[in-house]
Structures are given as C-alpha cells and as structure tokens.
Design a protein around this nucleic acid. Sequence first.
DNA 1: GTCTATACTCGGATAGAC
DNA 2: GTCTATCCGAGTATAGAC
Lengths: 211, 211
Amino acid sequence: MAERAGARARTGAGRSLPKSHRTRERILDAAARVLGSKGYAGTRLQDVAAEAGLQAPAIYYYFGSRDELIAEVMYVGAHRVRGHVIDVLAALPVETDAMGRILAAVEAHLRYELLISDYTTASVRNAGQVPESVRERAAAEEAAYSHMWRDLFEQAQAAGELRSDLDLNLTRFLIIGAMNWAAEWWDPKHRTLDDLVASTQALVLNGVGRH
Amino acid sequence: MAERAGARARTGAGRSLPKSHRTRERILDAAARVLGSKGYAGTRLQDVAAEAGLQAPAIYYYFGSRDELIAEVMYVGAHRVRGHVIDVLAALPVETDAMGRILAAVEAHLRYELLISDYTTASVRNAGQVPESVRERAAAEEAAYSHMWRDLFEQAQAAGELRSDLDLNLTRFLIIGAMNWAAEWWDPKHRTLDDLVASTQALVLNGVGRH
DNA sequence: GTCTATACTCGGATAGAC
DNA sequence: GTCTATCCGAGTATAGAC
C-alpha cells in the first residue's frame, strides 16, 4: 500500500528528506488508510495518530485541522493516480494505437489503485461524503483525470477503433466505475491482480472496440 | 427488531396501515437518505429525525439504537433490490434466452437503484464502512443476490451464449460494479435513465456475449 | 406516541511542559 | 517536535411530562 518512504538511513550524509517531512508523510499515509476504511465522518485523529505511531496533538504541528489533513489526502490521491497513468502512457511505443493506449491506462489505473496506493481508495470512496469545502482542491485534479480519459476515448473514436453506436461519455463512466468498484470486492487471496487486469481489458476491448 | 407491534388504528375498520407502521417507514426512508449521503459515521439521529419530521428521541420508540436502525436500512436495501429483480425475471416470457434474462436484470437493477430506492445506494455505499455487527443481517441478503447473478451468468454460459474465454466471476463483479458506481455519477439532468440502461446493456452484450 | 430536559461519552482542538 | 492535560461542542441515549 503506502508509498511510505521506509526508514531512511540514520547515518547522516545522504539524507534527502528532513525528518519533519518524513513524519508528515507518515501521517498522510495513515490518514489515507483510516479514511479508506472508516469514511470521512469516521476518521478520528486518534486512529490516524495510532497508525502513524504518535499522539493525536502531534498532527497539528503538520496540519491546521482535521479537514485540512483529509483534504490533503483526497488531493494527493487524485494527483498521484493521474501522474502514474500519464507516465505509463508516455512510456508506450509511439506506434501504439488508440485502443492499446486505453488498455494500458486500464492496467495502470487498476495496478495503482489496488496495489500501490491507499490514497486512491480513500479518495474514491469518500468523494460523495466529504463536505464541499474539503473536496475543492481534489476536485480540480479529478476533473483533469476525467478529461484525460475522455481524450483517450475520443482519440480511439476518431481513429475508427470504436463501435460507432456508442455513447462515449456514459460508456467511459461505466468502465471507470467498474474499476473503482474493484477496490470494494477484489481480494488478492482469491484472484491475482493479473487476472483482474486481463478480465477488465477483455470487457473493454470486446465491449467498446470495433471488430 | 423489525416488527415491533406498535399501536393499531384506533378508528377500527378501513385503515390498511396503522399509524405507527407508517411512522416507522418514514423514519426508515429518512435514514436511508441520510446514510446514503453522509455515510455510516456521519449519520446523526437528529438529521434522520428532521428528514422524517419529528424529534430524535421519537426514533427510540421504533428502534432500539442507532445501529439497529442502520442495520435495518442495510437489510431492507439489499432485500428490496433482490425482490424487484426476481419479480422482473419471473414476468419475462418463458422463451426468453439466458442473455435476454441478464439484460433484463441489468435494467431492473439500474432502475431500482437509481429511480426507486435510496436504500440500495445507502447499502452499497456503506458496505465497507459499517461494523461487522451491523452488517450481519444484510450480509445474507447480499449473498443471496450475488448468488442470483451467478446463476444468470452460469445459465448463459451453459447455453453457449457467452464468449468461452471469460472468467465468469471477475466479469460478473465488474459489471455489477459498473452499475453500483452509477449511483455516484449519474445525473438525471444530463442523461436519461433510458440512455444509461441502453449503454450498460450494450456494454454487457458486446463485452461478454458470443460473436 | 412524541415531546423537552438532561446525563453521559467521545473526539477535535489548544495550552504549555519538556 | 512531540508529549500530557484539559476545555468544549456535539451527539447518543434515557427520564419523564403530556
């Protein structure tokens, strides 16, 4: 789960992150986990602190309030998936066709959401529950991410790689929804992530692709 | 907890529902709405009471505790979708093929979830957040519902109406997930429910159907 | 049956020691 | 930077009037 920095060398010299920064990151990771499992109203600073290995008041040294901490988790979650998917797309061979790019994005989204980051789960599960004021910063990120997916689908459509009778917006939301919801039921003990990725890609390819 | 007797109509004869029963139902409806929008920990009895048009302590006449009320909402939510889908399937012409039954179930699920019932949204959104003890009763209903979908897919597979290379379990969860998630983004002001139903059915038909 | 008043608990936030 | 101690508002639940 977390991109927890892991204990860095105590030995001085090569230290790239000051201690305060690492503690802040640990609190953020802990908050993402609690937020993802307990929800917005259920997220207690005491639980976050326990997960991070310190006492609740220490959180106030790094964040102004509970809502500020939660807003940061939501923002970071949305920001990092988007960054990850964009990196993966950028690394594809230039000759990759539009459908190939969609399938790569599907894989990148699923792997990041389910394997790497608690933030995305937290963000996605609580989007509908947190007050407007707390969502604001994350909302811009989410809009940008949604925009990226729309571009992918529109490029595929322009290239004639999609069925022509499709409602692109509805279909896109359905597919993203299927992936987001996977966080609710996917259990690594029952199914490998590779299998889930393959099934999702198959559903997308057959469901929207021209053949 | 459910059928606490309650006082019956004083006026005798023609009344089909005693007043106490109707008030209980109103509280339950209100709780479903609040639970769906605020989440488990965010559901305050005061808000539920306000939605139902009475004061918070009145709730205790019908329910033993906050958790008992919420557990009832979760149970009723799961119970009613399942009942609705089963009714729709039972009303289909006997000659309907297996894929036709799946598409009918997709339509029934979406219409019930998005148009008729706040319960399903509440149940679906909070499945991961409420404590085990509160989920217990609803869990059996959800298992039965999941079982019903598995039957539908297995019958389609046995009839040779599905692609042969499919992981049936994963695909089923992906499709149910896409539908459940629709409650998070579908906005009747932008898209008609008919359009959503059609797009979902198309995704299923092309995504898993043979040819 | 539904209300007002209130006891009790819990969690966010601040003060101030170290 | 992180702790202990504490204040305070919010929310569940109960008592008891009507």
